[in-house]
């Protein structure tokens, strides 16, 4: 009985029940399957987050994004005053998180791959692309670079899902994806 010392002093020599042996074997095989799914997906899957990242000062990152945005701004998003940036297909794109916006708005082409740069200028933010539901943790002082390939077109929201202060729930950005 579990609340008393085991009746046999040498409990580790007791036989193991058959259903236990079977279950442990099955569970262990399942653990292996789950383990191999991850490297397997790196080989054949289309959704693997690159781990490329660099240390960067927030000011430096801000300047990089602004210079880049100035070059490719095509219009303003409605009357929000926020630029819509449309970089050449297949090039580098930048987005920054700060209290409390994702900046700038992007316009991408469906089916093209972009090198996506992401960092925060102040606190941690959570980059959440909706309705795709792709979620990435964004840190200040780290610039993350991964390749993104939009496979559907339309208007996508980018919200923040890491608590970043009292305006956290107002932090929304946008990505337009257009068919060629």
């Amino acid at each position: 009985m579990g609340i008393f010392p085991p009746p046999q002093r040498v409990w580790w020599n007791q036989p193991i029940e058959k259903s236990e042996v079977m279950w442990i074997t099955i569970a262990f095989i399942w653990a292996l399957v789950m383990f191999f799914m991850m490297p397997y997906w790196h080989l054949v899957g289309e959704q693997n987050l690159s781990n490329e990242a660099y240390k960067i000062k927030p000011e430096v990152y801000a300047e990089k994004v602004e210079t880049w945005a100035a070059k490719y701004t095509v219009r303003e998003e409605g009357d929000t005053g926020i630029p819509v940036v449309r970089p050449p297909a297949g090039s580098d794109v930048y987005m920054l998180g700060r209290l409390w916006e994702w900046w700038p708005v992007l316009e991408l082409e469906k089916g093209q791959s972009y090198r996506f740069h992401l960092s925060s200028l102040d606190w941690m933010h959570g980059w959440s692309l909706l309705p795709e539901n792709i979620n990435i943790q964004v840190h200040p002082n780290y610039e993350m670079i991964f390749t993104v390939k939009p496979t559907s077109s339309g208007e996508f929201g980018v919200i923040c899902n890491e608590f970043c202060g009292i305006g956290h729930h107002t932090m929304v950005g946008k990505i337009h994806v257009v068919d060629k």
């Binding site: 926020i82 309705p131 795709e132 919200i159 890491e162 107002t170």
Partner: peptide, 24 residues
């Protein structure tokens, strides 16, 4: 969560944002 609703979030209607997003 499967539909992308964020945790730690006061307003999933984004009423006070310059740009919104509509959850289903």
């Amino acid at each position: 969560g499967t539909l992308g609703v964020p945790r730690r979030h006061w307003d999933m209607t984004f009423a006070d944002s310059a740009m919104g997003f509509d959850f289903p």
